[in-house]
């Protein structure tokens, strides 16, 4: 009997360790890291409506940062946003809506009207891609610089030095992806892949399946 128990124990041990190992190696479930909480904010968008972080609960939000007098410096970033906006329907996201938000760090110049005109010029679909800002520059600095940890700084000639970064936030307001610099894959490609991974977790991690997703977090099975 004792011997039997011992073998049972060994078998269990092998199954558990082997299972954990196979889980990490084959990664049947992949997730995105929970990086930190996204900042809270209340913005005014191109239609003059309030846009707060609470409004964006329950959906995925992709942020980028720019300004309308940007010129060609924002082209690449805008192109990526546009590409993603147009391809959102092709992604397997279930029913989870995705909102793209461009926050302007030039509130003095970027009135709702100018944002509206800019949105049209870059081909933004107002239902999916919103442009917004806060009138108070110091508050704005805390949101973009302090919260999203994205750099921008006014220059003497009225232009801005800034990082064309993207930040991906999930339905609970947790930052799940930061795209600050060119990695091995293109940003748009990676972000769209990541959106699907996020949706997969949001839809499927219910009941007992949530254990697998928690395990994926624990074993750092992060989507590349």
């Amino acid at each position: 009997m004792k011997r039997f128990l011992l073998y049972g124990f060994y078998t269990l041990l092998i199954v558990v360790v082997g299972g954990a190992f196979a889980f990490k190696v084959f990664q049947p479930v992949q997730v995105l890291p929970r990086i930190r909480l996204a900042p809270g904010f209340a913005l005014i968008d191109q239609a003059g409506e309030r846009l707060t972080n609470e409004d964006l609960r329950g959906q995925f939000t992709l942020y980028n940062f720019g300004y309308t007098r940007c010129g060609s410096a924002c082209d690449l970033s805008n192109q990526s946003m546009r590409e993603m906006q147009d391809k959102l329907d092709e992604l397997a996201l279930g029913d989870i809506p995705v909102t793209l938000v461009t926050i302007s760090f030039d509130p003095e110049y970027d009135t709702p009207e100018r944002l509206q005109a800019y949105a049209e010029s870059v081909g933004a679909d107002p239902a999916r891609w919103r442009f917004a800002t806060i009138a108070d520059p110091s508050l704005l600095k805390y949101v973009i610089g302090g919260g999203f940890e994205t750099y921008y700084e006014a220059q003497d000639d009225g232009s801005f030095a800034f990082d064309p970064a993207f930040v991906l936030v999930d339905g609970w307001g947790i930052i799940r992806g930061e795209y600050r610099y060119q990695t091995m894959a293109s940003d748009a490609e990676r972000i769209m892949r990541h959106l699907e991974v996020l949706a997969d977790e949001a839809i499927n991690s219910k009941g007992s399946a949530s254990v697998a997703y928690e395990a994926a977090h624990y074993f750092l099975c992060y989507a590349p």
Binding site: F21, K24, V25, M184, F219
Partner: peptide, 20 residues
């Protein structure tokens, strides 16, 4: 061998799969 697989396997596979 088992301990090496557990302690190294996943990271090695990660790094080899994402080799650049």
């Amino acid at each position: 061998v088992a301990l090496i697989l557990v302690a190294y396997g996943p990271q090695l596979i990660d790094q080899i799969a994402n080799i650049s």
